[in-house]
């Protein structure tokens, strides 16, 4: 019932606004249409300029108001290039923005129709076209060069001494696997996955798996100033490992392993001081829509010193040890089940 009342109210309000607007048109006819047209034209030109000036003021206000909410400078060595490139692009586009918008609204005011005014007949100017085709092309070429330079840095193979960690997304949390003492991640097979005792489907016939550590609380422990290479995968749908503080991002695609690598610059403890926030924590966000819990797929990154990291690692139990009971029978059942399905 209240919906109907609401709709009726809305209809009445709009009806009234329409009638007022309509009356203003009739008034225009009474006052002489030409004169009203001229007045309106003048009013609109002024309003557009007012919009422009207020808008420019608003941009400055918006900037000062929001800058304090921005994330701190890049926490990875590779992301520093992002920060400087972002600034460069911002300056270039900012200049173009101000020039073109100013011209637009300046022309609006300057060339508004006035009694007796006439337009010039100017149809084209090839020289101008050539100039304003070439200049953007050169500027774009410059931005492409900077961009590709950074792109190559980011996408180049990870240094050989990089720490290797596997990050696997599932609806709706992150599973993180460390290679353990041997430094090698063992093979895994999605058919062997079991939510009870083999969340990543580790193949227990591969001895490399025996010392692998799996953390299911979404905490990624990495070492400051040491490159880390993430091997990214997904168990179900596409997810995305978003590391805003490190300026990194990579999709987690089922069936395809993707990688990124970066070198953290500040430990979590250092960031707490830097940001004046005793609760500071690096977060991993899922940046690819993955279902109803997408917004809650949160992980954290703990950047620590080598000593702290070693101490932490020493306390971890390998996944094999955690699931002391032999997992082989379960894996077998899964394999049988999948064979049956294939038939």
């Amino acid at each position: 019932m209240s919906v109907f009342i609401l709709i009726t109210l809305v209809v009445i309000v709009f009806g009234i606004i329409y009638q007022i607007a309509k009356a203003s048109e009739y008034a225009a006819v009474l006052n002489g249409e030409e004169k009203v047209k001229q007045q309106t034209n003048k009013l609109m030109a002024s309003l557009l300029v007012a919009f422009f000036l207020l808008g420019m003021y608003g941009i400055v206000k918006c900037h000062t108001a929001l800058m304090k909410h921005m994330i701190p400078e890049s926490a990875s060595v590779e992301g520093v290039g992002f920060d400087s490139m972002f600034t460069t692009t911002l300056i270039v586009t900012g200049i173009v923005f101000v020039i073109t918008q100013t011209l637009l609204f300046w022309f609006v005011y300057k060339y508004q129709s006035r009694p007796g005014s006439k337009a010039a007949f100017i149809s084209h100017n090839n020289k101008l076209e050539l100039i304003w085709t070439t200049i953007p092309a050169i500027v774009m070429a410059g931005l492409v060069v900077i961009g590709l330079k950074n792109w190559i840095t980011i996408t180049s193979p990870a240094p050989k001494d990089a720490q290797i960690v596997e990050v696997v997304g599932k609806q709706f949390n992150w599973l993180i696997r460390y290679p353990g003492k041997d430094g090698v991640l063992g093979k895994r097979d999605f058919r062997k996955i079991s939510d009870e005792n083999n969340v990543l489907g580790l193949d227990w016939n591969d001895k490399d798996n025996k010392d692998d550590i799996i953390s299911q609380n979404g905490e990624l422990h990495i070492v400051v100033n040491k490159p880390v290479k993430l091997i990214i995968g997904s168990r179900d749908v596409i997810h995305d490992v978003g590391l805003p503080h490190f300026r990194m991002k990579m999709d987690a695609v089922p069936g395809i392993a993707t990688t990124i690598w970066f070198t953290p610059r500040y430990t979590t403890a250092e960031m707490k001081v830097k940001t004046n926030n005793p609760d500071f924590v690096y977060e991993i966000s899922c940046d690819q829509m993955c279902g109803k819990g997408h917004y809650s797929m949160r992980g954290t990154v703990i950047v620590e010193t080598q000593a702290e990291h070693d101490a932490w690692l020493a306390k971890q139990q390998s996944y094999w040890d955690v699931n002391n009971a032999p997992a082989t029978p379960a894996a077998d059942t899964a394999a049988v089940a999948s064979t049956t399905m294939n038939n």
């Binding site: 034209n41 557009l48 073109t100 637009l104 022309f107 060339y111 129709s113 076209e129």
Partner: peptide
């Protein structure tokens, strides 16, 4: 895209603008 913007700007330049 830039060429289009510049041409629009020059279209209203020296025009007799009717709003």
């Amino acid at each position: 895209s830039a060429v289009k913007v510049f041409n629009w700007l020059t279209t209203i330049w020296k025009g007799n603008l009717r709003f």
